[in-house]
Design a protein around this nucleic acid. Structure first.
Lengths: 204, 204
DNA sequence: CCACCTATTTATAACTG
DNA sequence: TCAGTTATAAATAGGTG
């Protein structure tokens, strides 16, 4: 949209990129809000600019809540997946539903205890699904599923580091407390502000 | 956009709402992707349909990572905010930045050695700019600038922890390496893929 | 519900002061 | 740099099959 068509690749000119970011960020947030209102759904949006600045939007109370819900949902899926691990394992390791070949050599593959032998499982899965015929969308779904699997494993590993991390964060917080932070109170100024432009009303 | 203008309120007709959701969800994700690519930023989007179904998008590696980053940032800000509560209170309760009273007593506030004397600089800036006349947008810009200042200070502090962090991350990576990760090579498949529907091309 | 088809509304790229 | 304008590209509401 605009005077010229735009290629879907990184805008190299820093200035243009910044301007485009600013404009499109506003547009994206607006659309996220509209989706939330019109369709009565929860929408959460998080953007990190290349400067590392955080922008967020959420249709509901707080982004945190939506993210909590997201986390819960993902963990739930993990739980479900885990509880059906045995059957799934059977399913994934047993090609009978397709080639009916003898798969017993997979039965003794070690390290598959906790349902993760990602590489093998995935390779098999891909082979069977005839990946070449898949659409990109389906591949995307697949990737998400794989990510969930990975997440599951990762979760366990990360727990081992959790305490150390916490310790470190506390240390960080302590160090940071040496800094004095200024938080602008925008609301009061806004309230006192005279007629705002349409654009402003529109975006905020 | 479309045959009729649309009011920004919940669409009551369930069917229309569902259709609109479907269409707009696609559009929103597409725009999120475009923002990520064009402006080289990280974007994460989470949507819960009213049916509780989860839709997600992320411009980067995984949504989880962005969410992690988000969490870290928020925690950081909270920590900083809390630690600076006292000074902030002082500043906010002191109307001198408006009344042009003597400010020298700020000169001795500790912890601000490093070339930034945020409190003073900001007070001065605000005085000069006659903050009451500013628009919300300008205030936003101001806030961003201040944030950059803060970030610089923070950065120096964080550096002190960088090495420890790096060490820890390496440990994490090592642990993760026990897992076999599959990275889908989307491009090749895409390239080989036969004619995709317009919608597909449009969205991906 | 999905794909496709316009008529319109929106978003926004490029430009201006 | 930054708000405001304009010409165009895009998104999409409503409708059809």
């Amino acid at each position: 949209m605009g005077r010229g068509k735009v290629q879907l690749k990184r805008i190299e000119d820093k200035s243009s990129r910044q301007v485009t970011f600013s404009k499109r960020k506003g547009g994206l947030i607006k659309k996220a809000r509209e989706l939330g209102v019109l369709c009565d759904v929860e929408v959460a949006l998080v953007i990190f600019s290349d400067q590392g600045r955080l922008y967020e939007f959420s249709s509901a109370e707080s982004l945190g809540k939506i993210l909590e819900r997201y986390r819960r949902q993902v963990e739930e899926e993990i739980a479900v997946r885990r509880s059906s691990e045995l059957e799934k394992k059977d399913w994934l390791c047993n090609d009978s539903w397709r080639t009916k070949q003898d798969m017993t050599h997979h039965a003794d593959c070690p390290g598959l205890q906790m349902g993760a032998r990602p590489l093998e499982m995935i390779q098999r899965y891909l082979e069977e699904q005839n990946i070449q015929e898949k659409t990109l969308i389906e591949l995307n779904h697949l990737e998400i599923e794989l990510d969930v699997m990975l997440r599951q494993t990762r979760f366990r590993k990360e727990k081992q580091l959790r305490e150390e991390k916490t310790l470190m964060e506390e240390e960080l917080v302590a160090m940071m407390s040496e800094n004095h932070v200024l938080r602008l109170e925008l609301e009061p100024n806004n309230a006192r502000a005279p007629p705002l432009h349409e654009t402003l009303l529109n975006l905020f």
